[in-house]
């Protein structure tokens, strides 16, 4: 995994969250380390939209037991989860 690819993944995650989840809640900016669950950007349905996005657009499979705040609550954590999966493959 090159740094460029890594940046692309993070960009894609950020863009998805901004356009698909945050804008509907009237939020346009957020930090990469900010808890998007605490501020309501990622609600219970948002979690599944995010997982579907990861599965369909980034080609990673997310296990049932991985769908939890500690893996998905911020852009940084989502990126870590994706990278850990890509490394395993």
């Amino acid at each position: 995994m090159t740094t460029a690819n890594q940046a692309t993944i993070k960009d894609q995650v950020r863009q998805f969250i901004r356009e698909e989840l945050a804008s509907a809640k009237g939020i346009s900016t957020f930090r990469d380390d900010e808890s998007l669950m605490a501020n309501g950007v990622i609600d219970s349905l948002g979690v599944f939209r995010l997982v579907t996005f990861m599965e369909e657009n980034l080609g990673v499979r997310v296990g049932d037991e991985e769908i939890r705040a500690e893996n998905l609550e911020s852009v940084d954590k989502i990126e870590q989860l994706i990278l850990s999966k890509i490394k395993k493959n």
Binding site: S44, E65, I67, R68, E70
Partner: peptide, 11 residues
Amino acid sequence: DKEGSGQAIFT
């Protein structure tokens, strides 16, 4: 599992 896993378990 852990504290806070209820949503994932229920879903």
